[in-house]
Write a protein that binds this DNA or RNA. Structure first.
Lengths: 156, 156
DNA sequence: TCATAAGGTGTATATTTATGCACTTTCGAC
DNA sequence: GTCGAAAGTGCATAAATATACACCTTATGA
């Protein structure tokens, strides 16, 4: 699946594992992997994942993804399709196909107080809300930790 | 007063306290404060302080200084007795007894580009200057990060 | 199904940022 | 002090990045 999301994920990977000093550098690395795209699109992708060119303190510039953006961008921002509450103790989170597990792992890793646990299938995650916590608190924590999820909420 | 250092310090302040989306923005803010400089110089300053323009996640760009490069009014107050250069690649920093380690930890934490590393004993710190950088640059960075240290330099 | 909306992309170009060069100033060793 | 080297700067321009626009594809809804 050579989709936009796929390319974005490869681009993140390149930025995090290699030293790239310009968008042309990135385009070259992509071409080595058989992926062709224009500088224009790359610029738009980089904006989405909040990657940017920063001085490296040693007389040059290097592309980086700020840590707080790396977390929420890598999986959650692009893979989560929707979040919807059911009753007062559950939330159903939909991802694009195959990503439910990766996403739920990220949520689990945060050990958020209002989340008792998660169960994930292929494209669906069930979030169990801990007794004594509200839907609102779950939403607030998720949004705080994964900023990009904000507009994925269907109800609250 | 070193004018360049002064301007750099004001620029950091602007970036941290206002929303600036381009170098021209910064130049405008500086002009409001009676400081005039060209975009060329600003670009060079920003490179020094490792400030850069990053996507703000909301369809725009904003200038930021990454946390590890950001200046903080650190607390290495009266422990430093003197700073003296030796040769072209070392500086010897004297502290009051027992504080060398704590002080060098603060210097290390800044990850200053011109400092390759430090070694500390009880009241003495040896600063190793990174190849390609000058004594002058070490002094400028130290003074920028630890202003009160300014008058502790024995030679320059 | 078709119409319309929404998203994705490349081209060309505008905008923004970096830097070579020439010149001036400051520094550091005598 | 003087001298040579390094740092600082503006101008002009190169290099790099962002985006308006046109076009195409894919979703959405009647």
């Amino acid at each position: 699946m050579n989709s936009k999301q796929n390319r974005i994920s490869i681009i993140s990977q390149i930025i995090e594992s290699e030293t790239v000093r310009s968008q042309n550098d990135i385009i070259d690395r992509l071409r080595e992997r058989g992926i062709t795209l224009t500088q224009a699109s790359l610029s738009r992708y980089l904006k989405e994942i909040q990657a940017s060119r920063i001085p490296d303190g040693n007389n040059g510039y290097i592309y980086k993804i700020p840590p707080e953006a790396a977390k929420s961008t890598a999986v959650l921002s692009n893979e989560v399709v929707s979040v919807e509450f059911s009753g007062n103790n559950m939330a159903v989170l939909k991802t694009i196909s195959g990503y439910a597990n990766a996403v739920s792992a990220q949520i689990d890793a945060k050990m958020l107080p209002p989340i008792a646990g998660t169960i994930s299938g292929d494209d669906t995650i069930l979030i169990i809300i801990r007794d004594g916590f509200s839907k609102r608190q779950v939403k607030d924590y998720l949004v705080r930790e994964f900023q990009y999820i904000k507009n994925k909420f269907l109800n609250e």
